[in-house]
Design a protein around this nucleic acid. Structure first.
Lengths: 338, 338
DNA sequence: CTGAAAGCGCTTACAG
DNA sequence: CTGAAAGCGCTTACAG
């Protein structure tokens, strides 16, 4: 900028005005044109670091998810990025891998990089970081995972109870009578909600509790083997719902290995979409979250908060309904019609 | 920092020295302790923006890949992040989705954010951006994709010819005689190398050219249907190698749908690992790239370049050997032993 | 229409 | 052992 100014014999301030389109009505068109031309010729790009230091804005949003290689989160990341770009923001994303310490480290990094706002999927025991953001009055919105301690925190969630209700209702309509569900043994509110919704609907429609199988995150594969055996041969479960993407991958992998008949011997429904489902012998029924709408809502909340001084977007949580994509894995050829 | 200094009645400079561990031998332990205590109590975290403006270093590396939701790239991202963190760097990553304009936009963004170095997987026609980096003397290293125009650019690559040779040799040893390969019709050097290696080995071991099927990126699924029919029933190919992750997903999905017998009717080998393979009926043989070693090499190159004034790491490309993970999809039960 | 000057939050050579 | 001061590359209220 200094170079441009000195070469043209004008002040740095004038260059700044022209390049930022400020005070256009007060600057001679000719000078402006000369400045723009030289800037383009020199391939000048402003130092955002300096700009940010002065304006205290980076026009960057920070997105922290559990695992960016999970299709659910990478789709969210894609939509959030799109939506952010449309509003003149960029996004930096990182994976916390369900580790609250790692989550905190990333949060602090983004904080010191002065991102303008945060979109967060909280890991177990990640609540304390919400406190930090509240203390420092940093704009944030929670996505996917609600925090039990901060029920009023702005958040964008799936209506998890309704989702489970849809799944169980569908299974019952297709003649399944002994439902089971597979989840991980983490204390995550969204998984609890799914469980509760599942249990409630099973009780009201079938008069029974579902069989519940909980796995440890690190030992999914080995435990899945036992679980499937126990569910099908001991508990005589006739359908299983996999509660997360990772659980579904481990479960379907095991079912492919032992070559169990789906949907005849065992009906299957999964939460969330995955490209991998296509490699499974039977097309998979899954509950699809309205990821695009949710991502959009999250970005819009932050951008409104950041860009407008007057209108404040309403806090609190917003719930979105999922939709059940019915495929062959949960529809028996000979459904009893009685 | 100013607050700390004024509350303690010392200068801002002193606070800076203490907090950065500079001149420790010349500062009274007592003062240092007081400063550290107050900083901790106030939850002070330095403004990296200001720091960077002064030092002209961000300790951030920029990673641009084709698609972060692809397991191959998300694994690379993970290892690169690990390795970078171990060296005191952070990484910002973004997907260019094989679009050179998008690639350029991201590159310029990272440039204006003053990242210290770049790790890049070039899209088709992305060469001009290398020129920009060379002009501005920005440290970078290419990963996965070599540029034809800049053969001497620092790059970390798979030995793609050797990889193809391993695959064909394995197929021939297992009695396959009419090999085919499926790739995408992009002008990407690493895919060309794979193709050449495949053809050379086929010719020397079998005396024939492989059947080559090229798909358009946007129409993988629909085209795959025809391709498989043509390959198996018209061309009487007895084995197929899928050259990229996406092609493999589309191919295996189609094979699952039509329920073709693997490996009896058709042998299958894929490039790169994927969690999804586990959902396929038959375990998949694939060529595994030494992703961890490659990621490590990329980061080490950049860090050496950035951190040491004297020793310059050698430029030019480094090739890594892949290893073939043999599973059932390419091993017929009754291999002719003649 | 244009410029001089202060300041964003740090670092660091220099002087005491 | 400690501090005053310049400066990183910008923006912007103010004065002409």
């Amino acid at each position: 900028m200094k170079d441009i100014a000195s070469q043209l014999g004008v002040s740095v301030a004038l260059v700044s005005y022209v390049l930022n389109g400020k005070k256009t009505n007060k600057i001679s068109a000719q000078t402006a044109a000369r400045i723009k031309a030289l800037a383009a010729q020199m391939n000048y790009s402003p130092n955002q670091i300096a700009k940010s230091l002065k304006t205290n804005r980076t026009y960057t949003l920070g997105l922290i998810v559990a695992d960016i290689s999970n299709l659910f989160y990478s789709s969210i990341a894609k939509y959030i990025e799109e939506q952010a770009n449309a509003n003149g923001y960029h996004v930096i994303y990182a994976s916390a891998h369900e580790d609250p310490d790692r989550f905190g480290a990333i949060l602090n990094l983004l904080l010191s990089r002065q991102v303008d706002g945060f979109i967060l999927a909280l890991p177990e025991n990640g609540e304390r970081w919400i406190e930090l953001l509240e203390d420092q009055h940093r704009p944030y919105v929670i996505i996917d995972r609600k925090s039990a301690c901060y029920p009023d925190a702005p958040s964008i969630l799936l209506d998890n109870r309704d989702a489970s209700e849809q799944i169980v209702t569908h299974l019952v309509a297709n003649g399944y009578k002994r439902p089971g569900l597979v989840t991980i043994n983490r204390n995550l509110l969204h998984l609890e909600e799914r469980k509760l919704g599942y249990a409630d609907t099973c009780k009201s429609l079938l008069g029974v509790e579902p069989y519940v199988y909980e796995l440890e995150e690190g030992r999914l594969e080995e435990q899945m083997q036992e679980i499937i055996q126990q569910a099908v041969y001991t508990d005589r479960v006739d359908s299983l719902c996999f509660f997360t993407n990772k659980v579904a991958m481990a479960g379907l992998s095991e079912i492919a290995t032992i070559n169990m008949a789906v949907p005849e011997q065992l009906g299957i429904v999964c939460f969330d979409e995955a490209a991998a489902y296509k490699l499974f012998r039977t097309s998979i029924t899954y509950l699809k979250q309205p990821i695009e709408a949710m991502s959009k809502a999250a970005v819009e909340y932050l951008v409104t908060l950041l860009d407008s001084k007057d209108e404040k977007p309403e806090k609190g949580s917003r719930q979105f309904k999922g939709s059940l994509i019915v495929n062959n894995s949960s529809v028996k050829k000979s459904t009893p019609q009685c």
